[in-house]
Simulated scan of single mutants.
Amino acid sequence: MPLCRHYIAANDCRIVSIASPQTKDHTNIMAKLCLTLIIFFQIISVVKFAYSANEASIPPSKKILVAQIKEWVAREKSIDEEDIKVAALDRRFIVPDCPHKFDISFPFSSDTQQVRVNCAKIGWKAFIRVSIEGKKMYYVYKDDFPKGHRLSRQDIELLDQTRVGHNSGLIKDITAIKDLILKRSVSTGQLVRRQHLSQVVEVFVLKQDKLAGELLTDDDYESSMHPIAGASAAQKFPKRLLKNALIARSLPAGYVLQEKDLKQRHRVLVAQETLTRGRLLSPLNARVEDYYGDLLPDAMLSTNGIEYLEVIRTIQAGSPLRVSDVQVASLIIKGDTVNFSVARGSLLITVSMEALESGKLGEQVVLLNPESGEKVRAVVSGIRSATGL
C-alpha cells in the first residue's frame, strides 16, 4: 500500500501549496485500484452485518425446525449436517411452536429435494425444499471386493467432489445400492458406478449330487444371489416350490436348479384301480394321496361327495382324477328297486317300489308300488333311495 500513501500525501501537499512531484500515470492507476478495494471491503462488511442481523432475527421455532430437518436428512442420507441447506428463511414462512419433535419424511421415494414436516399435536404441516451442497457427493469402495459381492452401506464411503474426474454413472445416493451386487471385481478407493452393479435374483444351488426320484431336503441346496441378467427364466422361481419336491432327473453338485427339475408334491384324488366308464366313485376306488408332478387346474383334491359321481371315461389306476373325468351319477336307474321313505310325524315308513324313470341326486322321479299299482312322485336322496314330496 505504499503507492496509496504516496497518492494521498501528494494530494494533501498540493492542497496546502507544498511543492511535490506530479503523480505518474501508474500512480493514478494504483490510486483507482485502492479506491476499488476500499469499496469492496465496505460492501462485504455490510453484507456480513445484514446476514448476521437476518440470522439473529430467525424465530426459535424456525431454528428448531431447521436443526431437526438437517439432523434427519443427514441420518437418512449418511452425510454431514453442514452439507445440507434448508430453504426455510423466508420471513413469510411462519413456523409454530410444536410441543413435540416434528415428524419429518420424504413425500416421495424418488424425490429427496423436499421434505414433509408435520406437527400432529397442533395439526400443522408443510413441504420444505432441501439441498445437499457439500463437496462430498460421490462414493468410493472402502475395500477390495470380488465379483458377486452384495454391497452394503458399510462397504462404501463418501468422496470429496474435487477429486472426481469422469462423472458418468457415479452413485450419489447411498440408497441406490440396495439389493445390488457387483458385476465385476473392484478395488479400494475406486469410484462406485452404476456400471459396476446389477440387480439380483435368488437362485438355488445343489450342494451334492441328486438322483432322479430322490426327495429334495433343505440340506441338499443353498441359496445364492446372482445378477438378474445372468439367471435364466427357468431358474427364477419361488423357494416354496422346493418344499417336499422330488428330483425329476439326476443332477450334479453345483447345479443351479430350474423349475422343470422339480416334481412338486400335491395332495390329489387318485384312482386306486382302473375305473371304467359309468363306474361310481367311492372311498374304496378313489383316495387322496401324494402326487408329484404338474398339478392340473381341475384336479380333484377331496373325497367329499364322490359317492354321487361316476367316471365318464376309463381312468387308469394311479392316475389323478379330474373334474372333467366325472359327472353327477344317476343314483336311480329305470327299473331299479327303490327304498321309498315317507315321514309321518315321528314315524318313518319305508317301502320298496319300482323306478319308472332314472334320476340324479335331488331330481324328482316316478315310482310304482308293485302291490297296489299306485304311482307316486319322489325326490332322489341317495343310491336307489328316495323320499316323499
Results as ranks from 00 to 15, higher is better:
Thr303Pro: 03
Tyr308Trp: 12
Gln316Asp: 15
Val351Leu: 08
Val326Phe: 06
Pro297Gln: 02
Ser346Val: 02
Leu296Cys: 11
Glu307Val: 11
Asp325Lys: 02
Glu357Gln: 08
Ser319Phe: 10
Lys375Val: 00
Arg322Gln: 11
Ala317Ile: 10
Val376Tyr: 07
Glu310Lys: 12
Arg313Gln: 14
Leu309Pro: 01
Ala355Glu: 03
Asp325Thr: 08
Gln316Tyr: 10
Ile315Tyr: 09
Asn369Lys: 07
Leu331Phe: 10
Ile349Ser: 10
Asn304Glu: 15
Val328Gln: 11
Val342Ser: 09
Ser330Arg: 15
Val311Ile: 08
Lys375Leu: 02
Leu361Pro: 03
Ala378Gly: 05
Val328Glu: 13
Gly362Met: 11
Gln364Asn: 11
Ala317Leu: 07
Leu321Arg: 03
Arg377Pro: 00
Ala317Glu: 15
Gly345Gln: 03
Leu309Gly: 03
Thr337Asn: 15
Leu347Asp: 12
Gly359Lys: 06
Val365Tyr: 07
Ala378Trp: 01
Glu310Leu: 08
Ile332Ala: 00
Asn339His: 10
Ile333Met: 10
Thr314Asp: 12
Ala343Gly: 01
Thr337Val: 14
Glu363Lys: 00
Ser302Cys: 11
Tyr308Gln: 09
Ile333Arg: 12
Pro320Asp: 01
Leu295Trp: 04
Ala343Ile: 00
Glu363Met: 01
Ser352Asp: 12
Val326Glu: 02
Thr350Trp: 00
Val311Arg: 03
Met353Asp: 01
Leu331Asp: 04
Arg377Cys: 01
Val342Ile: 09
Gln316Leu: 13
